[in-house]
Nucleic acid binder design. Structure first.
Length: 613
RNA sequence: GCGCCCUUAGCUCAACCGGAUAGAGCAUCGGAUUUCUAAUCCGAAGGUUGCAGGUUCGAGUCCUGCAGGGCGCGCCA
């Protein structure tokens, strides 16, 4: 019984996935018919777009992968498969090539149907159900709340945010989370640094050197001017009640207990406000902010360690010094240790400091247990590359705390090399030329920052040139992609002179005579569109949002090429004179291109522009 | 010394679960174009994928060793 040709295309977006099912069905049917052995393992069968357009639309390695278990030569097996696949009503031709690739050429109607899908779905094209609603926690930024974000933080923020967007598009239930490191020594140092600004706000002419001499070693760590308003705000709220006068009548800080907790809390709040502003300026929206201090305060660390202790994973022991490079002050010490080695780490890790307080790692374990208990089996953390040495122990901890149920992936972001017209921008705080993330956003715009941060793999160094980021030229990837979208919109605006808005509505364009799209460049563009859902799934599975940026650049390139062809050859222009049918088919294509670009930019939360200024 | 990451065209980088002749952009070279489909276009050349082995029908991709670069290495976060 023949099936209607268009029917199967409507319930599946990723045509490669769809044909994978069909190819495996063909293997099974061949087995049932006795042409192949039964029960072949098809898990390694891949179905992909071929690299060479000449190889057709879809290629599979099935014959090569199955040859050995089937006890057949790859090409013999390919013949069996090819015969069955050739019988599919959407297949125009089958070739066997190279060592045993089976290449399918699809009827063009399949590609047109794909364009119809794009027009019907709009920017939602490429949304998949891959994740099946599974909860995923993406934790990113998570800095100490001690100052404004710098450019490196910005990269982590964008990578995390885009990864979250990507996973959402792929059908996961994503929570975007920030872990506030508001406990520990760093925020105490922040409190001291704010205390200094507070005394200044009270009118004390106190120098950094003097204050430094009067406070514990190394506590005046944060000397940036951004703390001056915090000191002033502290004075406005508390007056001089947090200070006392010495015998000369000068203000100084009293005993630690009397001022530091209050100042610390105030300062942390102020810094988090600052950070949230930076994140907002970057368009990063995290919905959960977890406080390390609160977590520890409610006994979560004790709970997590008790959990591990019951399983024999906590013990008192003495670590070996690191081989080859023993620290000068090394002396063997008994510590409370977590058996990280049992879960793949190199050494067991301490959970308690000698003063009895928890290590950062201990609190982080509690935090990840907390995430797991909130329902997240898939956790992703985005960290700076300098935390690379911490990955193994944290993954070990997650395994231990979740009984192997939880999976932690850590994306390490390499440094950002900020330059301006090729010259390095000095990032020195001391020289007063410190460039914050906010400075960069204000200069080039959030969408530019977001896109450029994603033009490299997270674990590769990234060069960010302020001048190039603002250029309107081919060198600037953001511009290049945005320009493609703007060109599409421009064509559609022009089309409104000849067509009604009803005719130009996507749902109307979906009924255009798409068979009129016959130029190879047009077909190639549709073919690239058809790969978009697969691209989303692949990038989501690999947790690699940068792939989207590359796809968009390539796709935009193909569109620009088609546009340029119309410059030389007027018959290839999108709006054809005296041929409304052809114009509408091409406008459908143009609208489809705009949707796919919008769909991709949406993953990055970058706004597609209607026109360029 | 140990662990993790990186090494691909002159430069900056891609390469989807191991697939076919390793791809883009810039720069270089050769053409086109003086304009409105705005902020060029087309083409060429460019490679022992750091080195040496191994696994595989097939390796940039996986394994082992080596070299170079980065990060980290008991109570910093």
């Amino acid at each position: 019984m023949p099936k209607p040709e268009s029917e199967p295309m409507n319930d599946s977006v990723n045509i490669f996935q769809e044909y994978r099912h069909r190819i495996i069905a063909a293997v099974e049917a061949a087995a049932a018919a006795g042409a192949l052995p039964a029960g072949l393992d098809t898990s390694r069968v891949s179905v992909e777009p071929p690299r060479e357009a000449a190889h057709g639309d879809i290629t599979t390695n099935a014959a090569m992968v199955l040859a050995k278990p089937a006890g057949m030569k790859p090409r013999d097996l390919a013949v069996v498969l090819a015969e069955r696949l050739a019988a599919l009503d959407t297949v125009a031709g089958v070739d066997i090539a190279g060592p045993g690739f089976v290449n399918l050429r699809l009827k063009q109607s399949v590609l047109y149907a794909q364009l119809v899908q794009v027009l019907k779905a709009g920017p939602a094209y490429g949304d998949t159900t891959l994740g099946a609603g599974a909860p995923v926690n993406v934790e990113y930024v998570s800095t100490n709340p001690t100052g404004p974000l710098h450019v490196g933080h910005g990269r982590g923020a964008v990578v995390g945010d885009a990864l979250a967007g990507l996973l959402e598009k792929a059908g996961y239930a994503v929570t975007r989370e920030y872990y506030i490191n508001d406990a520990g020594a760093q925020v105490d140092a922040l409190a001291w640094s704010v205390g200094f600004r507070y005394l200044q706000a009270l009118g004390e002419k106190i120098s950094e050197e003097t204050f430094e001499g009067s406070c514990p070693q190394g506590q005046l760590q944060y000397r940036g001017e951004y703390l001056i308003p915090v000191g002033r705000a502290l004075m406005e709220k508390f007056g001089d009640s947090l200070a006392i006068k010495d015998e000369d009548g000068a203000f100084e800080l009293p005993a630690i207990d009397e001022w530091l907790p209050k100042v610390r809390e105030f300062a942390i709040d102020a810094m988090m406000d600052l950070i949230r502003e930076d994140l907002a300026a970057l368009g990063v929206r995290q919905s959960v902010f977890s406080s390390e201090r609160q977590l520890a305060g409610r006994g979560a660390v004790e709970e997590a360690l008790e959990f591990l202790k019951e399983r024999g994973l906590i013990y008192q022991g003495i670590l070996e010094p690191p081989k080859g490079k023993t620290p000068d002050d090394w002396e063997p010490r008994e510590q409370t240790l977590f058996r990280a080695t049992r879960f793949g780490d190199d050494v067991d890790r301490p959970v308690r400091k000698s003063d009895g307080s928890w290590t950062y790692f201990a609190t982080d374990m509690a935090y990840h247990l907390d995430k797991y208990r909130r329902g997240f089996k898939i956790m992703i953390n985005v960290w700076g590359a300098d935390h690379g040495g911490y990955v193994k122990r944290m993954r070990a901890a997650v395994k231990a705390l979740t009984g192997g149920e939880g999976e932690l992936d850590v994306k390490l972001c390499q440094m950002v090399n900020l330059t301006d017209d090729g010259k390095p921008v000095k990032m020195s705080k001391r020289a007063g030329t410190f460039v914050t993330l906010r400075d960069v956003i204000d200069k080039v715009g959030k969408d530019v920052v977001r896109f450029i941060m994603l033009t490299r793999k997270n674990d590769a160094h990234l060069d960010f040139d302020l001048t190039q980021a603002q250029e309107q030229s081919r060198d600037n990837p953001v511009f290049y992609v945005q320009y493609a979208h703007a060109r599409c919109r421009s064509v559609l605006r022009h089309a409104a002179e000849e067509f009604t808005s009803e005719e130009l509505a996507p749902r109307s364009l979906a009924r255009a005579k798409l068979g009129r799209l016959a130029d190879p460049a047009e077909i190639e563009l549709i073919r690239t569109m058809a790969q978009w859902p697969r691209m989303v799934e692949g990038a989501a599975l690999a947790h690699e949002p940068h792939r989207i940026a590359y796809y968009l650049q390539e796709f935009a390139g193909r569109f620009h090429a088609l546009w340029n062809m119309g410059k030389d050859n007027a018959s290839l222009r999108f709006i054809a004179t005296n041929d409304r049918e052809l114009s509408l088919a091409r406008l459908a294509l143009v609208q489809g291109v705009a949707f796919v670009i919008a769909s991709g930019l949406k993953v990055f939360d970058v706004e597609p522009v209607e026109e360029l200024r």
